[in-house]
């Protein structure tokens, strides 16, 4: 560890090859990423060595992919459900009522909560349209369970919901008001069981602060205690090290 106790303005050039390979220990990784944020010369050097490191993907001898892998993949590609009015009207009335009430809970409170101008609200409605469609599609398929999500720390203005569908073991995370992460940083979603954290995906944020992530974990969602979102310095993390942004109990 002593090797990392260097002045911060000293370029950690000897660590850049290991950084490009993903072979640094956490303390070294932290040092390099903090330095890269400030040093254009090292960013360029890191980019160059990373271009070489990426070639290592061809290190293994080529193997034929079993044709069954392609067939299985294609069998798993389900078309995105249609959100047309015709499709909607085929749903049982109770499903529509359920969806409508949950949607009202999800989006209505957000609009009512803020004192915005008419133009801003109209703009928000347009921006939330795709988000709403995704929610509607999930709810229209099956019964869902709504869990509120409130941001804290660097994302204290964020709010949204998790919609769980235990029958299909899927969940949709919809958040708005999230500040866009700095270059290189990512919002990472974690499923929490006891003291263990399983990375569930990266939460992409658009320029309006909207974020959606559809989860379909291999393990049953019922077995997890909570869902957490952290702001990480890299998307390639296997355990949470960054600032906690939101936490919701799944019990």
């Amino acid at each position: 560890m002593a090797e990392c106790q260097r002045p911060f303005d000293e370029c950690p050039e000897d660590l850049l090859p290991g950084y490009a390979l993903g072979a640094l220990d956490p303390d070294e990784l932290d040092l390099v990423e903090r330095h890269l944020a400030l040093c254009a010369r090292c960013r360029a050097a890191a980019s160059e060595v990373r271009r070489t490191a990426e070639l290592l993907a061809f290190l293994p001898s080529p193997h034929l992919v079993p044709a069954r892998a392609r067939r299985k993949l294609l069998a798993r590609l389900r078309p995105v459900p249609s959100s047309s009015l015709t499709t909607w009207l085929r749903r049982p009335a109770w499903v529509l009522a359920l969806a409508a009430s949950i949607l009202a809970l999800l989006f209505g409170w957000q609009l009512a909560e803020r004192d915005r101008s008419a133009d801003q609200q109209a703009q928000q409605v347009i921006q939330a349209d795709s988000q709403r469609r995704a929610v509607v599609q999930l709810l229209a398929q099956r019964d869902g369970l709504l869990i509120r999500l409130h941001g804290n720390g660097p994302a204290r203005q964020a709010h949204g919901a998790i919609i769980l569908d235990p029958s299909s073991n899927t969940a949709l995370i919809a958040v708005e008001g999230l500040p866009r992460p700095a270059t290189g940083q990512s919002y990472v979603v974690w499923l929490v069981r006891g003291q263990e954290y399983w990375q569930a995906g990266i939460l992409p944020v658009d320029e309006h602060g909207h974020a959606e992530l559809f989860l379909s974990p291999r393990e049953s969602l019922r077995t997890f205690d909570a869902l957490a979102i952290t702001l990480e310095k890299s998307a390639q993390v296997s355990s949470p090290n960054g600032l906690p942004v939101a936490l919701a109990s799944l019990n």
Binding site: G22, A23, L24, L59
Partner: peptide
């Protein structure tokens, strides 16, 4: 290189 890239080991 193999231990780092394929083995996932740190330096």
């Amino acid at each position: 290189i193999e231990l780092a890239y394929l083995g996932g080991l740190t330096q």
